[in-house]
């Protein structure tokens, strides 16, 4: 599919490059070493640039981490790169109080539910989109994607009323279903990309060998797109974990996410900065764990399986 055009670009690029090199008729050996030296320079420039970028990227997070180990008096008394009186008091407060740590449990419950639901419904649909033509398939695909584009703010009030009227308000499943609005389309999109990379012949051979569709799908097809499923789960986790507007609106006590509980650090006596920082740090930890597990596949997944 992409061969002809990329071949063309490549050929034209080769021509241009070739023309360029004819004009500079330099002796052979020094040029090679010059090129090598240039490459080494480029590599070092890349490394230095990357290090600078990573430092800038991680500095705000480090600042939060640093603050979470300080007492409020120390935070307000001045800036320092390391906590002088290292304290775990802020973390102890969170782990010692159910109204705090249940926030994390609630968030993890609805995120997991959302991941499972999204994958279960998206897998067959993605297979259908990647293998079959059917009436309205293109419109259906665009309609699905259009839901990924819907601003949550638009659906805030209707969601609240809908889930209240069916008695799901303040349950984990309500948030999980609401997050399906943007996660299911995304899951279908990513999985379709991965599935299209599996040759059709595999399906056909399996059917000839007498496999039924469900048996083929579970036993042969799913293992082939393992990494795609992992990456999809990762993306569902990511977008459900970071969303707060819908999660906050659809819950009040029993399923309240951690993000909403964090606002408690504002009180009449001022901000409890240390506690806020500690709570923030703890919301970052699950994300790092999850990305660690999919690190080898995630590069492909970021292009939604479409490289």
């Amino acid at each position: 599919m992409s061969n002809s055009s990329s071949m063309n670009t490549q050929r034209s690029s080769e021509q241009t490059i070739a023309e360029g090199s004819y004009s500079s008729q330099a002796p052979q050996a020094p040029v090679v070493s010059l090129a090598e030296r240039k490459a080494r320079h480029a590599m070092w420039r890349g490394r230095i640039g990357m290090t600078v970028y990573l430092i800038l990227l991680l500095m705000p997070i480090y600042w939060l981490l640093n603050m979470s180990f300080k007492t409020n008096t120390e935070i307000l008394s001045g800036l320092s790169f390391f906590p002088e009186n290292f304290t775990l008091e802020n973390y102890a407060k969170i782990f010692g109080d159910p109204t705090w740590y249940m926030g994390y449990v609630n968030s993890i419950i609805y995120v997991s539910m959302n991941m499972v639901i999204s994958l279960l419904v998206a897998l067959p649909a993605a297979y259908a989109f990647s293998r079959y033509k059917f009436v309205g398939d293109k419109h259906m695909f665009f309609w699905l994607l259009s839901n990924r584009m819907a601003p949550p703010a638009v659906f805030l009030l209707p969601f609240f009323q809908l889930y209240s009227s069916v008695g799901l308000f303040d349950t984990h499943i309500a948030v999980a279903l609401a997050h399906c609005l943007f996660n299911v389309p995304l899951a279908v999109w990513i999985l379709e990309g991965f599935m299209s990379g599996v040759p059709r012949e595999i399906d056909e051979t399996a059917y000839i060998d007498g496999y039924s569709f469900p048996k083929f799908f579970v036993k042969i097809f799913l293992p082939l797109i393992r990494s795609g499923i992992g990456v999809t789960a990762f993306f569902c986790f990511m977008f459900s974990w970071v969303e707060l507007l819908l999660a906050r609106t659809l819950t009040s006590v029993d399923a309240k996410p951690i993000g909403a509980i964090m606002t408690r650090t504002v009180s009449a006596s001022g901000m409890d900065w240390g506690l806020l920082a500690a709570a923030g740090v703890l919301t970052i930890v699950p994300g790092i764990l999850v990305i660690y597990f999919v690190r080898n596949h995630v590069a492909k997944g970021f292009a939604l399986g479409r490289v």
Binding site: I61, W241, M262, G280, I284
Partner: peptide, 17 residues
């Protein structure tokens, strides 16, 4: 992993940071 970290921080915590 390091580059991906900001993407996995809840949006309200990004605001807080």
């Amino acid at each position: 992993i390091l580059v991906a970290i900001p993407l996995l921080i809840p949006w309200n915590v990004v605001g807080t940071i």
